[in-house]
Amino acid sequence: MSYESFYDDLRDTRFALNHGAVEMPAVGFGTLFRDLSVTTQAVKDALDAGFRHFDCAERYRNEDSVGVAIKETLEGGKIRREDLFITTKLWNTNHRPERVQPAFEASCRRLQVDYIDCYLIHTPFAFQPGDNQDPRDEQGNVIYDSGVTLIETWRALERLVDEGRCRSIGLSDVTLPALQAIVAEARIKPAVVQVESHPYLPEWELLEFCKQHGIIVLAFAPLGHGMEPNVLEDEVITWIARRVQKTPAQVALAWAVQRGVAFLTTSATPSHIRENFDISTLPHRAMLEIKEEITTRIRFNSVVETGVPGFIPRKK
């Protein structure tokens, strides 16, 4: 049984957020690069390919380079600010309520925007406040900040929404229990939760909870970040890719959007950027195969346990 590939509008999917009259494009572009010098050109290439959702963070140390690409593109007149969905994140060293607004304002300045579409708490872990983003003791251990709770930080984000320059707020790198605790107490519910998710880490339980509360799940590493075991070499994925005449990456990304998950991919290679945008709807049977036949379960990034981002290399 073969399927004709056909143009459809899956790549144009937008998810309505639960507060603010905002819609998030399901197809998103992440801006965490090993080589920061590629940032501006990569963002321009992504805009040219059709991406309108950009995920940034103070911790990535390149918001200013993203800002240059956005400003030049907007000045070109083909794209308007309201066509874009820009997310950035509050870093762990700025969890104390009095540090939240200054951190937010600094991100806006670097990105050269008047407002942010979504502001996320980068991880639920508070680090020692200060200018050092990675505070460590003499033994090399992270210095955490026990003087602030996650709900206190969340209340400061709620105030940003009240003031109008932050359209929506959310959490990143959070476990389901931590998310449930915030949802129970929040005045303004999280609109977005960004977590690692791919066919080897489908996060069905978290997704179900988020759907019940109108929260969008935003997947990072939706292709498994090139780690072993390699999601893109999975037999189920590669077999579907051959059948539908798409690449394994396009299959994994379509799977995300069709199950109601937005995703972020990152590349500085124009052909990969275009490939990641060019997704098409999978047949129902393919969706079932991915859900039922892929049994590998693995988390590639340990940030949810420590607050320190980092992919864990594994041997085959």
Rank of each mutant, 00 (worst) to 15 (best):
V183P: 09
L176H: 11
L171Y: 02
E152W: 02
R167L: 10
L157P: 05
S172K: 03
G164T: 03
S168N: 11
S168V: 08
C166N: 02
R167W: 09
R155T: 07
L171C: 04
A184I: 07
L179T: 13
E163N: 00
L171F: 00
A156H: 10
T153C: 14
E152C: 05
P177S: 12
C166S: 04
I169N: 04
R167A: 10
A178P: 01
S168Y: 08
L179C: 13
R165V: 00
V183C: 14
E152Q: 12
A184S: 13
L179F: 12
E163L: 05
Q180E: 15
A156Q: 10
R159D: 12
T153P: 13
T153F: 13
E163F: 04
D162M: 10
L171Q: 00
T175A: 08
S172W: 06
C166W: 03
L160G: 02
A156T: 09
A156E: 05
T153Y: 13
A178N: 14
G170F: 05
W154P: 07
E158W: 00
L179Q: 13
Q180K: 15
I182K: 00
S168R: 07
W154K: 03
G164Y: 02
Q180C: 14
E163P: 02
E152A: 05
D173A: 14
L171T: 01
L160C: 05
L176R: 13
S172C: 06
P177W: 11
D162L: 09
S168T: 13
